[in-house]
Every structure is written in structure tokens, then in C-alpha cells.
Amino acid sequence: MLKSTMKFATVLAMGVALPFSAMAAAESDDPIIIVQNNWTSQLVLSYVVGKVLEGEGYTVEYAPSDSQLQFAAIGRGDMHFQVEAWEGSMKKAFEDAVANDGMIDAGTHDALTREEWWIPDYVLETCPGAEEWKGLDACAEQFATAETAPKGRFVGPPADWGKNYADRVKALEMNFAAINVGQAATLWAELQSAYDQKKPVVLFNWTPNFIESKFKGRFVNFPEPEPACFEDASWGPNPNATGDCGAPHGGWLKKAAWPGLADKYPNAWGIMQKVNFSNAQIAAAALMVDVDGLEAEEAADKWIVDNADVISSWKN
């Protein structure tokens, strides 16, 4: 009896101690935690940065996160680095986290982003002027559904992305009703469905995005925004309203980081600050996954090989 108890205790102790020792060792080379979101370019680019850091001898882990919740977590150090923060959809959460949670703005990419109303090319067959907002407005009834009739239906971004298209529609006195989807995937389901039926549709889209490689279409041009558009009612096509303009053609794409990086991993921090992608590089990264069918991690490996010179420029 005693013997078997002893044996049991030994086994138990070993069982408890083993994972602990494993953990202690894994924590001693504290991993750098890179945030992953759920769109292609971000996934590939985060693997690219992670793999470059691993090449420098760091341990890297990836943590999935919501695109809005992530910034506060980065400020607190639960996660350390985000490679893609978009002006259009994340500006507010990003700036809040810089102001309140101690997150650091780790620099801006060369890549410019645009978020705007978007139409598939076939829409131009039935509504030739649709590339300009006035022309689109002229055939608004083509876009109507039971719920919006007689107004056209604009499929807008998730409501929390900080864009109020209903206001713009009002300011420009357009014959459209803006509805909000619940998540980005909904936009693409709408687009796919309309595209297969060749049905008129106008929806929110952005670039760089995987959509460009799968669907043929273009942005609708609105008056280019100036500060005066939001302050001076007389500016723009409607002399009685502010906000009668589109979104900027070139929005920023930033990186976000935990303030502790500089002290804890000075070399890695140096690299992260230099990480810089252009539109073409981001599109190439996303294309490998969305069109060629690679996994994000495989695409990152290939991207690193293809862009060795870019990566070496980050290291010195």
C-alpha cells in the first residue's frame, strides 16, 4: 500500500513538474506577440514580420484579435505589434489607444489606402455614368429593393467602422438609402450574389483588398474632401450642407506597438520601426493566398524570398 502510494506520488509529481519546467523555459525567451486579424494581407504581412524576427533569434507568437479591441491590448502589453492599422476603419480606436492606453504609433507605411463606394464594371452597361456620384444618383432606382424602394440601396460598412454614409447621402441629396452590414464578410456575400446574377449593386469597398483580384469593378468618384467641406456649408455641390464630399483618396496605413518593446527587444524594435510595405507589395502578398491558394504562412515564406532586398533594408 505504502509503496503504491509512493509510486503514485512520484508519478504525480513528475506529471506536475514536467509542464512547469517546459513552461519556465518557454517564458524565459519571452515571445514577441504579433496580432493577427481576419483579412488576408494582414495575415501574410504579420507572418512576414514574425518570420523576419524569428530569423533574428526571437521567439514569436501570433494572437488573433478583433480589429478594434486589439489597440488597448497592445497598449497594455498583452500583444506587442500590429502591422496594419487602417485610417478609414480604425482611426478612432487607434488614436484613443495612443491617448489613453499608452500604445505607440510605430510609423506609417508607404502604402496608401482608399475606402469608397464601389461598383462592379457591368453596372456601367445599364448605368453608364455610374463612375461619378451624380451619374450613379441618376439611376438610383436600379439599385432599389423592397425595403428601400423607391430609393436605391447602398450596402455600407459595419456600423462601428466610424463612417456615416447616411449623412453623406443626405448632404449630397442623393436618392439612396445607406444600410449597414454587420461584418465585412456580409459585403462580399452581397457582392458575390449580385455579381453572379449581374444585378446592379453599389457597396462599400477599399483598397488594397482581395476583392480586386476576384471581381472587376471601380470606385465611384465623389468630390475630393478638404477641411472646408466639413466646416463651410457653401463648399461643395450642395451650398446648404457640410459633409458633401467623399473619403480621401490616400488614407494612411500605420503600425502599432507596445511601448515596452524598445527596452525589452531593442533590435526587434529597430526592425519593426523600419517595416514598410507599398501597395504593390501588399497586393502581391494577398494575391498569393486569394488567387494562388497558398496558406498565409506559405505565402509569407514566398514573399520573404521574393523580397530579400526589402527585408535586408529593414535590418540596418
Binding site: 483579412w39 479591441l69 464578410a185
Partner: peptide, 20 residues
């Protein structure tokens, strides 16, 4: 749970839907 940062099937599933 994957919305709160849990890796695994849930995260991959949301990503798949996001990519249609």
C-alpha cells in the same frame, strides 16, 4: 470565443467566411 482572441477552428472559420 475567437472574437475574444482564442486561436483555433473558430478563428480560422471567421477568416474563411471573411474571404468568401
Amino acid at each position: 470565443a475567437s472574437i475574444a482572441g482564442q486561436p483555433g477552428l473558430g478563428h480560422k472559420l471567421l477568416y474563411s467566411l471573411q474571404q468568401l
